[in-house]
């Protein structure tokens, strides 16, 4: 019999959009992590990772929020984020943001090394191959930019989705092309953003899928909002919901 290792202690970085708009994703993440043998905690001292400030050129605020997050997540074996964008902020940008701060540079590095996007953590670190879920439907999957290009999240969600019983994946043409969300971009340049999300929803509809999945709430709110405005019946969910089999909450943008 294999030696029983102590359960990894995981701190869940919930992200603002999951915290405020879609707590279901947080619970799905907790379930996936616990099912895979982790102990999950949610530090209440966490708020925003600081990416909106960072991307708006407000370096000072971004640094302050980075320090807050670092302090809130000290002591965990791993920090897991159900978003490639906030995950990328912590993993890729914190070390760079605090590189010249002698008191915090090493702590930023340390947090970066322990931080993972949820699905890649399950697949790459915990070696999960089957989440035991069932989903009756044809889905398509959009690769959110930060997860894809900053963190290399590409085949992990596809691998895990393949284990979901009853699920068929129709690949999305141009899955790697941005949906037009871009944080404040979508409100600063609404017309350009609209053109981008229009092209995206056209591709989504072309797949004949009944469900759209992705790993980032920002992109999901954008694409769901557009699909609903266009009167589409396509259901939109975070990939964690389907992997965890937590699908009793109405899809994003639909009434209960």
């Amino acid at each position: 019999m294999a030696e029983k290792r102590p359960a990894p202690r995981v701190g869940l970085f919930v992200t603002c959009l999951v915290d405020l708009f879609r707590p279901t994703v947080g619970f799905a993440a907790v379930k996936l992590l616990e099912d895979a043998g982790c102990t999950v905690e949610v530090p209440s001292a966490q708020t925003c990772c600081g990416q909106p400030a960072f991307n708006s050129g407000d370096r000072k605020t971004a640094q302050e929020l980075a320090r807050n997050t670092i302090a809130a997540f000290e002591g965990f074996d791993y920090v897991v984020v159900p978003s490639g964008s906030c995950g990328g902020q912590i993993k890729k940008h914190y070390p760079e943001l605090l590189a010249e701060d002698p008191a915090w540079a090493a702590r930023a590095q340390h947090l970066s090394a322990r931080t993972y996007e949820l699905v890649s953590f399950l697949a790459d670190v915990l070696g999960v191959t089957d989440t035991g879920a069932r989903y009756d439907g044809t889905i398509t999957y959009h690769d959110s930019c930060s997860g894809l290009r900053e963190l290399g999240v590409k085949e992990q969600p596809r691998r895990l989705l393949a284990s979901v019983e009853g699920l068929t994946l129709n690949e999305l043409p141009g899955a790697e092309v941005c949906c037009g969300f871009g944080g404040t971009f979508c409100v600063k340049y609404p017309d350009v953003s609209n053109r981008m999300v229009e092209a995206k929803t056209a591709d989504i509809k072309g797949t004949q899928a009944d469900t759209l999945l992705a790993g980032d709430m920002g992109c999901l709110l954008n694409m769901a909002g557009k699909l609903k405005r266009e009167g589409s019946a396509i259901r939109v969910r975070h990939v964690a919901e389907v992997l965890a089999g937590v699908t009793d909450t109405p899809p994003i943008g639909e009434k209960g």
């Binding site: 915290d19 405020l20 879609r22 707590p23 619970f27 017309d191 709110l221 909002g225 405005r229």
Partner: peptide
């Protein structure tokens, strides 16, 4: 202007 805003579930995760 161009898309709907999905409503939040009503409680925060925290």
């Amino acid at each position: 202007k161009h898309r709907d805003m999905p409503a939040p579930e009503g409680k925060t995760f925290q």
